[in-house]
Design a protein around this nucleic acid. Structure first.
Lengths: 338, 338
DNA sequence: CGATATCCTGATAACGTTTACTCGAGTTAC
DNA sequence: GTAACTCGAGTAAACGTTATCAGGATATCG
């Protein structure tokens, strides 16, 4: 048994053939006589040969690796997305290289450089960069790229959720359940999901001929603290012009805001959903384990990851030419809070 | 501007030198005259040269990649561990390849093969395999390996939390706060953390000369459902031999069990911590956002990841020889539930 | 039976690096 | 003035593959 890894030369020597023939057997070429195949297979086993993927990549100009960039792997949404995408890549014998950009455009840019130097065959990106500038540079170099969840460029394939429709659906549901003073707490309006979810909320109200009351529409960062604070303002406000003293339902535009709002409603002593209903955009494990369980619009993380990975593999395969935009439906999961 | 990536040959031609000299400049060799350095740097910029890491790896027999195996990346504990480890690797210019084994020994084995074929320089493993057999095979081939969180082999470096001490500390705290009928809900006794946390619980009781009441010690899988069910049994039990009718405190051996127990205590209408106190091993985001916030023993995920990554880099560097075992202290975070 | 096609197999170039070696020119030492 | 060094730069081998090409043996056919 050799200390170093066995190479084609070792196997060839043992089997008494040339390295070319060994290579042919490994790659399943049919033009090798049965007795040599036999001998070579025996030699492969005996030497415990494993192909050197590095050498193969260099020769073939193909690494069977892809970059997988997410803004924060500790966020369960991105973790699920990455897990589902990885499963697809695995099945196709591609190795994903996961990079956590920590929502930093600079870090993201750094990873592009590293991944290109590593000659990845493609990139699946949940971008931290709303400008889309850097990812477009990468795509312009001919590297297959698919954007997931957040779109930053119309020239690049993308897979994301229909934020507009999902938010509108949630608010329509609240209206259908009889709620009439529906507040909304949204994320930053310079993000796509921030804007779209707010637009969906407004669209739903308008389609029921209900007016949008500015004091009921709050905007802040996507954080628990912001959700708590803004919900508190909504709940404590002594009187709101043109509306009853407080909302009877709150639509929270993401998980963090929703958790904050949930906490605030309880903190100020209101019954859910009796006095204030709550519906949150994004699903999360604990939504089902609090009292009452929270009704959510489930952002299909795994589905986004899976579809984006499939799209990327197709692009790498070279079959796709026109840019594609996949819009997935968010699903309303009715639990106890609305 | 070339369509393909520039190589040393392109740069050398443009600068009118040999590729060897270009390589020397890139790698910072001092034996190059200033005017050539100047010319070559200009050529590097003009051609937008990026080294081909694949070719470099083949030549140097070193890939600057490491495998990072975790059982489930959607579990925030492993996500934090992976994130912290990745940050360390990044800083050292190593690229981690994250693999989600989904708690499957078979998948883990498959990843060992893939990663070895990719010639990773080392492996950081949170193993799904309690036997440690496969990871030992890998280590025996001379690949640097560090085990994190779960140890499966005494012959391999490891970094993990002191489960025994952490559990004992938590239970001692409960005793010091005056609780006297302390139940424990544990994980499977064929896992290291399952065993050690139970042993710590028992040790604490014994060190205060309190007897261990079998009916107060429950064992089941590390799931929310199990936690709910077993806590329910503890709370509903009409009378327990040698003890008051129900426990006044529960120690839950991990996050999932803790969440289940929390739900059960509320479900059966007991006040926390007034009627039943709760302390959970493992910290998690929402522990601080439920009512009351849950007192936990914080399993230092990021610290484990960081230390394990540092250890691995040292091993790869070749400076370490004897096997090392790092035991980190779990920290008691007192919140509202005990 | 000779020419030609068919089938296997081996030799070899190439992928893009790094590095040991070589070599010429300039410098120093006597 | 020549021998010995030093320094800077080029040549070429090597890493482990795959693929192209060519050649030898065997089979096929007229």
């Amino acid at each position: 048994m050799l200390k170093r890894n066995a190479t084609l030369v070792d196997v060839a020597r043992l089997a008494g053939v040339s390295i070319a023939t060994v290579s042919r057997v490994i790659n399943g070429s049919t033009n090798v006589s049965p007795e040599l195949v036999e001998r070579i297979n025996a030699a492969l086993r005996e030497t415990n040969y494993h192909p050197n993927v590095i050498a193969r990549s260099l020769r073939n100009d193909k690494t069977f690796t892809v970059g997988l960039l997410v803004p924060d792997i500790t966020n369960s949404f991105f973790a699920e997305l990455a897990q589902a995408a990885s499963a697809v890549f695995d099945r196709a014998n591609y190795t994903p290289i996961l990079c956590d950009t920590q929502e930093s455009v600079e870090k993201e840019k750094g990873y592009y450089r590293i991944l290109l130097e590593r000659r990845v065959d493609g990139l699946l990106v949940v971008s931290a960069d709303t400008s889309g500038k850097h990812v477009e540079d990468v795509a312009a170099r001919g590297i297959p790229v698919v954007l997931a969840d957040r779109t930053a460029s119309p020239r690049i394939d993308s897979v994301r959720v229909d934020n507009f429709e999902g938010a509108a659906h949630a608010v329509s549901y609240l209206i259908s359940k009889g709620y009439r003073t529906i507040a909304g707490i949204f994320g930053p309006q310079d993000t796509l999901s921030g804007k779209e979810r707010r637009a969906g909320y407004i669209k739903a109200l308008e389609s029921f001929n209900m007016s949008v009351i500015p004091d009921l529409v709050k905007v802040g960062p996507f954080t628990i603290e912001s959700g708590f604070k803004l919900a508190g303002e909504l709940l404590q406000s002594p009187s709101i012009s043109g509306a009853p003293a407080r909302p009877d339902a709150i639509f929270a535009a993401n998980k963090q805001i929703g958790i904050g709002a949930f906490k605030a409603i309880k903190h100020y002593g209101f019954k859910i959903p009796g006095e204030v209903a709550l519906i949150v955009f994004d699903d999360f494990e604990l939504a089902d384990y609090v009292e009452p369980p929270i009704t959510v619009v489930a952002h299909p993380a795994a589905e986004i990851g899976r579809r984006a990975a499939e799209l990327l593999l197709e692009r790498i395969g070279g079959s796709v030419t026109s840019t594609r935009e996949v819009l997935l439906k968010a699903e309303l999961v009715v639990r106890g809070s609305a």
